[in-house]
Simulated scan of single mutants.
Amino acid sequence: MDILYQIRARQDSFSAGEGRIARLVLSDVAFAASASLDDLAARAEVSSATLSRFARTVGCKDLRDLRLQLAQASAVGNRFLTPEQAPEQSAFFTQIVGDIESTLRQHLAGFDESRFQAAVALLTPARMIHSFGMGGASSLCSEELQTRLVRLGYPIAASRDPVMMRLIAATLGPEHSVIVCSLSGRTPELVDAVDLARSYGAKILAITLPGSPLAERADVLLPLQIAETHFIYKPTAARYGMLLTIDVLATELALTAPDANRERLRRIKLALDDYRGGDDGLPLGD
């Protein structure tokens, strides 16, 4: 249950005492979650009976359930409860670019060449590569991997559907590789699909957070470094770290056979020129 939403939705129907409790909770969730029931009642200037009635009004079974729900609400994180003030428009343009640059520098500084070499060794002999990702950036990056690697002649297919990932995982063997993308490394469907693929001997390359469940299941890990800011209104810059990792990996793979890959890229450029025309400097794909 989302206790904060339940309180906000009922603000017009509370009694005077319940209204004071509601305002206290909404203004200081951390205090409401950590305070004793006596302290909470005293701060709101209500009786224990009013506090108990408030708990039932907002959908809790009892006061114990209210405390549990408040604790869960507080655990979401203070930046979502009392976010920092949004900067002026010109300032947040600069902040967005600054966060992206900081993320890219942080990842570049943490890159380990031996990990990319291990990733190349895992992918190169694979009869088929599958890239898995779910959610926003992770699913898009799994498809970005397909775009990058298919140009180099690698047999690769991307999937973001949990049922399809399970179907694919059940067909794999030691001659297959799976690249799994996840900013958190904790998505249950991804973890389950990777467990299934591993049970049949497939090799796992994870682009994810170190120490996460997915990272622990990987044969090779390309670690991400997540450092979210308190400005919650802009999209996460972490996805740029994943894109940089993919670009470095794709370049490493391309350079394993530069002559053959140059010919592949030439043929792709020719096919696109025949299809759409355009300048020589246009990218290979939209």
Rank of each mutant, 00 (worst) to 15 (best):
P258I: 03
S177W: 03
A126D: 06
L183E: 07
L172E: 04
A44S: 10
F116A: 02
D65R: 10
A22N: 02
M164Y: 07
I268A: 09
L243R: 09
V194G: 07
L253K: 00
A158N: 04
D112I: 11
L270V: 14
E45P: 05
L40G: 06
S47E: 09
L172S: 02
V248W: 09
L24T: 11
Q6F: 09
R151E: 08
F231R: 11
E45Q: 15
D38Q: 15
A9Q: 14
V180Q: 02
A202L: 02
A193D: 00
V76G: 11
R266N: 15
L63H: 10
G17K: 09
G281C: 14
Q95D: 15
L253H: 03
M164V: 12
G110H: 12
T251R: 13
A137L: 03
R53Y: 09
I268N: 06
V120N: 06
E88F: 09
R239T: 15
P258C: 01
L140A: 15
G153T: 02
P155M: 10
V180I: 04
L282N: 11
R23P: 00
T82I: 12
G277Y: 10
R186E: 13
Q95P: 06
S184E: 08
R276P: 00
L222P: 03
R276Q: 15
D195L: 13
G281P: 05
T94H: 12
G241C: 04
I226D: 09
